[in-house]
Design a protein around this nucleic acid. Structure first.
Lengths: 209, 209
DNA sequence: TTAAATACGGAACATTGTTCCGTTTAGCAA
DNA sequence: TTGCTAAACGGAACAATGTTCCGTATTTAA
């Protein structure tokens, strides 16, 4: 969830509510559950058996349900954690690489993130209110992150200036989703192509056809 | 299912294979199952309990599994049956109404069909190969049906000529999907608006902006 | 009418989500 | 260090649902 407020059923909630730090083992297990869920979701989708996640984390199912009373709580927590990691990668890449290169690398990072989300898209649009806030979080975190990279690259004259962050994010998501096991590297190449398109006509915005 | 070829696990398959007509009770139960599944899917989505469908059809679960060994077989059969009904409605409407009116009525029919398919969209794109042929069937049946109506209306000078059947089909699907219980009639009005858009500038295609 | 083939029904089994409670452990005070 | 308490843990038990299997009933054809 957003940084300022956690929701019931999430451990951070209780901690913020009562000002009492969670017990050490509880913190450890929470992290283990998120790690395990990330791996299992990627391998088997968001409908993977709860027991499998608990087993991979080395805890009992009771512990899992203590931390995440509803399945959506776990899915949301994993999702947000990954969105955050992806968003945070933007300034890190910007600090290490030239603007254009940072942008290209971040787009690959983002597409790879999307590729692991097969099955989640369906859940997101399933009408389940538990998931309704996730798309907003997604937008709120990633659009500014990308915009920073874009602006820097534009300022450096490395890319054209006539593309918006949100449309680029959406386009890359479409490309990232079509990752297939029978076409390794396809999505990556397409995203790279997209970024090369930005480079074409750099510093002198080509009028749209 | 499709008229020309059934697939393994579907009863019509065995019938076509061995040239032997199915037993009378088997035919009856097959129809009852399809009717029941249609109703239950519409009410509870394609993940509705198998027992509920069997009960509604007045048969045992064993009978259901005999006819449809996999859940996808049942979903596909119901889907195709409805696609066929929708496609067949086009010539029927064309025979009864003026071209423009027939088109308008069919678009409503189609949007209503889409509205009942919540949840199926997710299954369709889930990557399950059992569903992979359904979108093709959908296109193959409905695009020609709509094209007939469009061509007739264009020939009669009732609508403009610069819209393709597949794009119109897709647009109406988007509108049909957003049917909400809190906004009765919303999707219908939007589809009607879309059709009125076709009427604007009839017989003298307005150049696109 | 009778017998074989076919289909039926639902009990039984398997898998997975969810709850509950006895047991264990971390944190703290004496 | 020791003992206490609240918190957390683990997994058995329960519930819901998908799937299989086989004894029984029905249809069909000779």
């Amino acid at each position: 969830m957003s940084q300022e407020s956690a929701e019931p059923g999430d451990d951070a909630f209780r901690q913020a509510e009562k000002g009492k730090p969670a017990r050490a083992d509880a913190q450890r297990n929470l992290g283990a559950l998120l790690d395990a869920a990330l791996a299992v979701f990627a391998a088997s989708g968001v409908d993977a058996p709860v027991r499998e996640i608990a087993a991979k984390a080395g805890v009992g199912v009771g512990t899992l349900y203590r931390h995440f009373p509803q399945r959506a709580d776990l899915v949301g927590a994993v999702f947000r954690r990954e969105v955050d990691a992806c968003a945070d990668a933007a300034p890190a890449l910007a600090a290490e690489y030239a603007p254009g290169e940072a942008l290209a690398r971040w787009m690959q990072r983002y597409a790879a993130f999307i590729a692991t989300k097969r099955g989640l898209a369906g859940a997101l649009h399933s009408g389940d209110p538990s998931y309704s806030c996730l798309p907003d979080y997604f937008q709120a975190r990633l659009v500014p992150a990308l915009r920073q990279l874009l602006d820097a690259a534009i300022a450096a004259g490395e890319i054209r200036a006539d593309v918006e962050a949100d449309e680029l994010l959406n386009a890359a998501a479409r490309l990232g989703m079509q990752a297939r096991e029978d076409r390794p590297g396809h999505a990556e190449r397409m995203v790279a192509l997209l970024v090369d398109g930005l480079r074409y006509g750099a510093a002198s915005a080509i009028p749209r056809p």
